[in-house]
Design a protein around this nucleic acid. Structure first.
Length: 273
DNA sequence: TTCCAGGACCGGG
DNA sequence: CCCGGTCATGGA
């Protein structure tokens, strides 16, 4: 992509970070790939374009935003070492190898919360479509067709009829409910700092519309609690087929959530998505 | 037409 | 604690 390189700066090596795996593994819903393999998306009210070239990941971020994107892509965590610990079975090793280059993004808490409410009993293309519509209707216009993820306070002020264009069905009430909790401050990221994994899970599940799975996703993707282990229909199938009946994710250690993402990505990929 | 998708809630056993 | 029904929507 010669047109990209003129203003590109290096974000990471392709050994550290695979942008295609990281952005298409199902943890985020606001990135899209163009015909050249470059990705464009929005996070933190910023638009970013990034691509791989000559064993490096380039991006078009302004210099001032580099710290933000380094944090977002979690570039200060050693994923190569973390992934190398998953040697408990050949299947797990296969998944870890297949998913090498995946990073767990440090996404915004409210965005992850809202996105994974939308995700329930839904498929990924439609989740993306609903979130795109949500941002287009209620986010800030960032130019060139991009919109920020709307603040919780903005959504909290709406009612169900305002969310009708999303076509998200019964999830609309859940979105409003969560938005109000975040907006009022009864639910905020800092309140989880001192909580054990179980306590944090239970705190999130107090919100009507958030159960075990969505809460686990919020912990992993919105609070970067790497031990969280979301189990959806794909994970249930994989666990049933490749793990003992009494399998406890705790045996996978502090990065169990990364293992979960390797397994999820492998299961979906080998099924043709 | 029926089944499925990164589920959750509710009632009853 | 586990079970089945129900909750919208759209694509296969």
């Amino acid at each position: 992509m010669p047109s990209c390189t003129k203003s590109g700066i290096i974000l990471a090596s392709t050994d550290e970070l695979s942008i295609s795996k990281t952005l298409d593994c199902g943890q985020c819903f606001r990135w899209s790939r163009d015909e050249n393999g470059a990705y464009t998306g929005v996070a933190g009210g910023r638009v970013l374009r990034l691509w791989e070239e000559n064993d490096s990941v380039f991006c078009d971020a302004p210099e001032n935003d580099l710290p933000f994107w380094r944090d977002y892509f979690d570039l200060d965590t050693d994923y190569i070492s973390a992934g190398a610990k998953f040697t408990q079975s050949d299947y797990l090793k296969t998944c870890a190898e297949f998913g090498s280059g995946i990073h767990i993004l440090r996404q915004d808490f409210w965005e992850a919360l809202c996105s994974f409410i939308v995700s329930q009993c839904n498929n990924i293309p439609r989740i993306k479509k609903i979130i795109s519509t949500l941002c287009g209707h209620f986010g800030e216009n960032l130019g060139e067709g991009f919109y920020s993820f709307p603040e919780a306070s903005k959504i909290a002020a709406l009612d169900e009829s305002d969310l009708a264009p999303l076509r998200c069905g019964y999830r609309a009430a859940y979105i409003l409910n969560a938005a109000r909790a975040v907006s009022e401050g009864s639910l905020c990221p800092s309140m989880f700092a001192e909580l054990s994994p179980e306590e944090a899970l239970n705190e999130l599940k107090k919100i009507h519309g958030i159960g075990n799975k969505v809460a686990s996703c919020v912990l992993l993707f919105g609070l970067h609690r790497m031990d969280a282990f979301p189990i959806d229909v794909w994970m249930k199938r994989a666990l049933k087929e490749h793990f003992p009946r009494d399998f406890d994710p705790k045996v996978l250690g502090e990065f169990a959530g990364l293992a979960q993402q390797y397994i999820f990505f492998y299961a979906r990929s080998s099924d043709g998505k």
